[in-house]
Design a protein around this nucleic acid. Sequence first.
DNA 1: GTATCATATGAGCATATATTCATATGTTTT
DNA 2: AAAACATATGAATATATGCTCATATGATAC
Lengths: 128, 128
Amino acid sequence: MEQLEKAVEQPLLEECEASCHGTEADLRTIRAQMLDEPSIAEMAEWFKALGDPTRVKLIGALLQQELCVHDLSVLLEMGQSAVSHQLRYLRNVRMVKRRKVGKTVYYSLDDAHIAEIFHVTYEHLKHK
Amino acid sequence: MEQLEKAVEQPLLEECEASCHGTEADLRTIRAQMLDEPSIAEMAEWFKALGDPTRVKLIGALLQQELCVHDLSVLLEMGQSAVSHQLRYLRNVRMVKRRKVGKTVYYSLDDAHIAEIFHVTYEHLKHK
DNA sequence: GTATCATATGAGCATATATTCATATGTTTT
DNA sequence: AAAACATATGAATATATGCTCATATGATAC
């Protein structure tokens, strides 16, 4: 019990020879190749944005073409407010951009890579 | 006010000519090409699994090589329990699998596509 | 057997999320 | 000007999430 619940306060890697694994020597190497914190945060934020059914639907629809809030609301069968909130979310992470024409606002994808990531993932899930 | 807050109860697409957009006619077409609910749920679940810094770190480490819980705990500088919980999460969505050797359990990626998705996304975020 | 180690798990808690409701903002029409 | 429309936003609420703590399980060593 107790063991490494406080891993944080250890010298880290220095006294790890006493542990369970067969990789003692090169935890340091692995660590050196790990992503830095900012990159990790960005990755997570990006995936999280796609990690919700409503947002997946929005992206999926916009993958086809630019659409206004109202149409998205109809397509998703959701209230205008909910759709608007999620569009703001997607806008904040720069997955989506908007274009105003009179009183209506058209949304479209703001990133070429989304399609790629989306498709790779979809194909993956299909062949599994 | 009130407008389409109840989009759900509409005939949908039938009486949409009265709305804001310029795409009235083919909302039906767009809808036809949208992903079905199960696929959407799977996509979201998949992305959600990657949508957390801790899990991104775990995947990132396992991308390099198989590792036991203890080593992951040291690498991430997190308690063993937290790591174990997240590993279970990743196992539930089949991103990760385990191999027992005595009392230690080695985790590794359970999916070839993860690396691809991970790298595409990372490259994307870097060049932005 | 007992002790120790590596991992897993359930409960509890604090925070984050997604949606709804009511209302605000900004635009067009009359 | 007022009315109607399209979208945005803040507050409230219900649910989900991630971590910690304590403890359980399962394996090895003594």
